[in-house]
Write a protein that binds this DNA or RNA. Structure first.
Lengths: 335, 335
DNA sequence: TTGTAAGCGTTATCAT
DNA sequence: ATGATAACGCTTACAA
């Protein structure tokens, strides 16, 4: 491995000069700059990343923690982060918390120990208090897909309540009077918010919330299947159901099919997230757009602005949800 | 930040002793060990990762390069790598090549510069020669999903030809006599191999290869759609098509539906990869299992064995494909 | 078993 | 503009 020392010898100057041209310092004469660059070229010099981090206390890499790596949602998030980061010549240290509180904490510690310049987190096991304290520390932290009032500026999020509201209202607007709901795990804030959006829409239409039309599932296809099965049992002539995410919606569609219930003719189903495979389904899933990829990119921009001092960047914390109208929902004829 | 120096002062010993207990060296008395651990605890000492890497020339992290991060295939791969690695207390530096030759090369250089202990690559832009040379270097390299004879031991792969053969044979065995094929980009080795498996099966059944039954697509849904459209145009009474991956199969299914062709009654479709959403489709997709997640874990085990000297590990380079029988294929009645 | 001291390859602070 | 030289926080001979 060739070092800065050898470069300096070949270029006939000091270590400092070499370091200066590497770091594009001003106040270095054109002549030495050329000599140094020439020497670097000749020696095929590659700066030692680790040594630089140690000496400068800057790693040019940001730690990214997600609850899990697989699945359409997080993979969309990760690819947004990685792409945007590498476009800025920064790099991602990606790690997953595996949905486990202790692992998430460990992961955060690890990323800090690792001298990450900033942290991008999309987690839900860890508490608000923990995160508030973390944001108070010396390392910049940005949260994706989570809203905590006390650290609003560190959050990139969507209005989940609004999303739940939009989904439900779409069905209500289409003439459905009984709209069922399959929820995510209510320990998760987004699941609670989406549900409360559902309730809000009902209220707006003067419909009283009916407990038997709610199934509390867990965002998985298994949960979605059980949810649809249960709802159908309690309510055989169900005409509309909103699912708190697309996975559950896909499972609900399958159950309907098994029971010879035609979608959307007999029953409308709407999902949430608009993950890429929602288009692959049959019928294509009507759903609520959750712009994870955009949020991920914005998180990177936040880091660029707040840590790497690229000042002209403007940050958008709240992202809009919107209705993606496809084939799985339909007007309901009340006659 | 508290350093090893402060720990040594509080513990009343030298730097080396502290370092020794950190690294679980033998030959350190129980007494000093306790004193040191106690001091670490009291000071809430956290080792500086960067300094350790610099001094020991070992980063405890492995570089992972994939063509892209999103998509079911790579996300399954990444999650396998990350999980297995973190179970071994090693960490992943994940980076994507974005399907671009130069970026892939840059990414590899970056990972090396970054002092990664080993490299796990799943790439296809870069040439065999480049990879052979890379494996000849000082950093251990393991390839997932690629077979290069000269460096067989550095490859974890499936027999794509066998997979293509199995898919085709399944359809042929079911009585279909005309089996169409929608291929991936033939610049990619796996696409070529899968196609040659198709041809092999045809030959075995004494069917001559018919160019009009082959559509050369690119593994995307868009390509799959065009492929199915074209094949159907040339061959309206098509009864069976094998798609070189599940994305294209899902697109082909959609085209069939649009044309009122019932699957599997009128036409059987089989995919390849068995990505998780193939179960969500309707009908559920019959496909060929491609055990990416397992291969990813094996790649990590290879690294553990070859770099971190965990000797008892045994490596499996070739993984089996198998037929996953679901709902999208059916016997064909030739009467 | 323990301590001393020389690295690891940079950056950064001073002089000059 | 340039060059010594001291950090950066740790590992590792080598010596004791």
């Amino acid at each position: 491995m060739t070092t800065i020392y050898e470069v300096s010898k070949l270029a006939g100057c000091s270590l400092s000069s070499v370091s200066r041209v590497m770091n594009k310092h001003e106040h270095v004469s054109e002549k030495t700059k050329l000599k140094v660059m020439d020497a670097m070229e000749k020696l095929n010099y590659r700066p030692n990343f680790t040594a630089r981090s140690l000496a400068s206390n800057c790693s040019n890499s940001v730690g990214v923690l997600v609850s899990e790596i697989s699945g359409p949602f997080y993979s969309d998030l990760l690819s947004g982060v990685e792409n945007e980061l590498s476009a800025a010549n920064k790099h991602a240290i990606i790690i997953s918390g595996q949905g486990n509180l202790q692992k998430e904490k460990d992961a955060i510690e690890f990323l800090i120990d690792r001298n990450c310049d900033a942290l991008i987190l999309s987690v839900d096991s860890v508490s608000d208090e923990y995160l508030i304290k973390l944001c108070d520390g010396s390392i910049p932290v940005i949260l994706i897909n989570r809203y905590i009032a006390e650290i609003e500026q560190n959050c990139i999020y969507i209005d989940n309540e609004l999303g739940g509201y939009m989904a439900t209202k779409h069905l209500l607007d289409s003439g459905h009077s009984e709209v069922a709901y399959i929820s995510g795990l209510l320990t998760k804030a987004d699941a609670r918010d989406r549900l409360s959006g559902y309730k809000k829409a009902l209220k707006e239409f003067h419909i009283t919330f009916d407990e038997t039309l709610l199934y509390k599932a867990d965002y998985t296809t298994k949960g979605g299947r059980e949810g649809m099965l249960t709802l159908l049992e309690n309510n055989p002539k169900l005409t509309a159901v909103v699912c708190a995410n697309d996975e559950m919606a896909s499972a609900a569609m399958r159950v309907a099919r098994e029971k010879k219930i035609n979608i959307p003719d007999d029953c409308s189903i709407i999902g949430f997230d608009n993950v890429y495979f929602s288009e692959y389904l049959y019928p294509q899933l009507t759903t609520i757009e959750n712009p994870v990829n955009k949020m991920a990119r914005m998180a990177v921009r936040w880091v660029l602005k707040n840590k790497y001092k690229q000042s002209k960047i403007t940050i958008q914390n709240l992202f809009a949800t919107e209705l993606v109208l496809r084939e799985s929902t339909q007007e309901h004829d009340n006659t």
